[in-house]
Simulated assay, not measured.
Amino acid sequence: MNLLFLPALAFDKKWIVLGQSIWTRGIMFLMRTICGLKVEIRGQEYIPKGAGLIAAKHQSAFETMVFHALLKDPAMVLKKELLSIPIYGWYCKKTEMIAVDRNGHAAALKAMIKQAQDALSNDRPIVIFPEGTRSALDSDLPYQPGIAALYSKLDTPVTPMALNTGVFWPRKQFVCKPGTIIIEFLPPIPAGLKRKDFMAQLKETIEPKTKELVEEGRKAHLS
């Protein structure tokens, strides 16, 4: 797929967006047919139809892919270093992903907000992983300031997302376990809350639901 769509880099980005969607659906098909790993999406009524902000739990590589099948032209917040990866980085640049310099502090946050504003103005949903990295099962990582900055500056509701992908496709592991990945979108947190209140509500929404889904996944896998 990477090689097939290389010529599309010379044309409108819609062709790369199409390629991302085909690639993701192909990955999901292979997961299902080869690994016995299915995907269940809950709370689909909460998925933004266009511009919006999604704060997603991040436990595996799957979250970097699945949004290309669930959303139309998502703008993913990712670390700037990924743009340096040959071919993959070219596609990220072409599709205008939101690249963040994690060592850039205030200037990096300002640049991220500008890119996010541009994405919303083009009716694109934004996806950010509040922890900033993949988390191990049962870990309790702090939520980074990037999500708080986007929430306050964009003045838009945030849709939390919980999941149990780490049960079946653990971080830093290649092999997938059979079962059913559950991804659940939760009711949006309205705009306008104070920063501290928003961060507390976001974590208190995502983390308990994630633990619930992880336990559900573990029980199903053992049975």
Rank of each mutant, 00 (worst) to 15 (best):
K177I: 02
T133C: 03
S135Y: 00
L9S: 02
T33A: 10
D155A: 14
L193S: 05
K153R: 13
K211L: 01
A75N: 07
L109A: 09
L109F: 11
R195Q: 13
K209P: 00
K94P: 11
Y88M: 09
A191I: 12
V77L: 11
V66G: 11
R25K: 15
I206V: 15
P142A: 01
L83V: 01
G36N: 09
K38Q: 07
I87R: 02
K196V: 04
W169A: 05
T165M: 11
A220H: 03
T156C: 09
Q173A: 14
G146W: 03
V158R: 09
Q173T: 08
G26L: 11
T95A: 10
P145D: 02
I16L: 13
P130D: 04
L193V: 01
A119C: 05
Y91W: 08
V66T: 05
S223E: 11
R25Q: 15
I113P: 05
K110P: 01
I113G: 12
D12K: 02
T180R: 03
L71C: 09
A220F: 01
Q201M: 13
S121W: 05
Y88D: 04
K196L: 10
L150V: 14
A99M: 09
N103H: 08
K172T: 03
P188S: 15
G52R: 12
V158A: 05
D140V: 04
P178R: 07
T24K: 06
E96G: 06
L3S: 03
T165R: 14
K194I: 06
I34P: 08
V214F: 07
V66L: 14
R134A: 07
F174K: 14
M112A: 00
G179N: 07
P160D: 07
A56R: 14
A136E: 12
N2V: 06
I181K: 07
I182C: 09
Q117N: 12
I113K: 09
L3V: 02
D138P: 06
L213Q: 10
A111T: 12
S21N: 12
D73H: 06
K38V: 03
I41A: 15
N2C: 04
T156R: 12
P190Y: 12
P74T: 06
A107T: 14
V175F: 11
M76A: 10
A10S: 09
Y143E: 01
V175M: 10
L154K: 09
G132S: 02
K177P: 01
K114M: 08
L213M: 10
K14P: 11
W23F: 11
L4G: 15
I206G: 08
T156M: 11
E212L: 14
L4W: 15
A149G: 07
A61D: 13
P125Q: 10
A61W: 07
Q59K: 07
M161C: 15
Q144V: 08
A55F: 14
L78N: 02
M31P: 04
T205C: 05
A191R: 15
A56S: 15
Q59P: 06
L18H: 13
Y91M: 04
I85P: 01
M1A: 15
D12T: 00
